[in-house]
């Protein structure tokens, strides 16, 4: 009994530093944002007495956002953004990994080059892409002009309500492909060479080997990238902030409502916070959490790996 107590004490004393950080910086904010989501909090709320000066409103914020067209618009855009980025990101990463798993010259250089964008800050990448996509003097317009297509995007690609989001998605896919490539490379290199040799003898072409061996054996990575990709889409903010100059993209008219064409859920959440609607913003964050959990659960069921 005494020994148990001593052992427990030692264990808890080792855990204390982490628990302290966890409680202050993670558990408390989560609990507090849940509290805010059930209360009315504005910029006039006294933050010195955070639990007493707010008025309890129950699920009012949740009901409001679920009937808010801007919220559903942001969810719809996020869904489209996810469809644009996640499958293409996975396919591009897998393609790069397969290509760079071959015996080619300068393999290490290519691996490093593709991975490099990951270490850059999203803001920096956003600014680089603004330059690439900008009208007249942007790289895309200049290349198009060279092949005889002049002034293809008078407002710039990011100024077009229909191209803004796909352009951001394109930039993000290229940025993330290097990281995905590393994950896929690791998984592919873990597949025994003799399995491919056995497949060769069994009569498999490269296409068969890809479909029946490589892809099934890298399914855990596909699952991981789908889940992290979903979470990234739901929390996408910096890229939108940087590439739309904090506007949420060009406006578009939808059923008489003026909406922003790149107003993704994460950015919408940020806007709500910056407008002082803390309760609403907190409620949005919990709805997004619910959506993330639901999608992750479906993904895990769907891609459930036997390995």
């Amino acid at each position: 009994m005494k020994k148990n107590l001593k052992e427990n004490f030692v264990a808890y004393s080792y855990l204390t530093p982490f628990l302290a950080v966890f409680l202050v910086f993670l558990a408390y904010p989560v609990f507090y944002s849940m509290w805010i989501s059930l209360h009315k909090a504005t910029i006039y709320t006294s933050w010195y007495s955070p639990f007493t000066s707010m008025k309890y409103v129950g699920f009012e914020h949740y009901i409001n956002i679920l009937t808010d067209i801007e919220f559903w618009w942001s969810i719809g855009l996020t869904f489209i953004y996810g469809l644009l980025t996640i499958p293409t990101g996975i396919m591009l990463s897998l393609l790069l990994a397969i290509l760079l798993n071959n015996k080619i010259k300068f393999k290490s250089f290519f691996r490093s080059a593709y991975f490099l964008p990951n270490v850059l800050d999203l803001l920096v990448i956003g600014i680089i892409w603004i330059l690439i996509f900008s009208p007249k003097y942007g790289l895309v317009d200049m290349v198009l002009a060279k092949i005889g297509i002049h002034n293809a995007f008078p407002d710039g690609i990011l100024g077009s309500p229909y191209l803004c989001l796909p352009a951001i998605a394109f930039a993000m896919v290229l940025k993330g492909a290097g990281f995905g490539m590393i994950l896929f490379l690791t998984a592919i290199q873990n597949i025994s060479e003799s399995v491919y040799e056995a497949a060769d003898i069994d009569g498999a072409s490269w296409h068969h080997k890809l479909m029946y061996i490589t892809i099934p054996l890298v399914k855990p990575i596909i699952l991981f990238m789908t889940i992290t990709g979903t979470i990234s889409c739901l929390t996408a903010f910096t890229e939108i902030y940087a590439m739309t100059s904090n506007t949420g993209g060009p406006t578009v008219q939808v059923f008489g409502h003026t909406l922003r064409s790149a107003n993704l859920a994460g950015y919408h959440l940020y806007r709500s916070f910056s407008e002082g609607a803390y309760g609403k913003a907190a409620a949005i964050s919990f709805v997004l959490l619910g959506i993330a959990l639901l999608i992750s659960f479906i993904n895990m069921k769907w891609l459930k790996s036997d390995n």
């Binding site: 003799s194 399995v195 040799e197 056995a198 003898i201 399914k219």
Partner: peptide, 18 residues
């Protein structure tokens, strides 16, 4: 290899794990 009409048993079995 697929056109040689041979079959091979490997040292590490080389079974398809999935």
């Amino acid at each position: 290899p697929k056109d040689r009409d041979i079959a091979m048993v490997f040292q590490n079995y080389a079974l398809y794990p999935h």
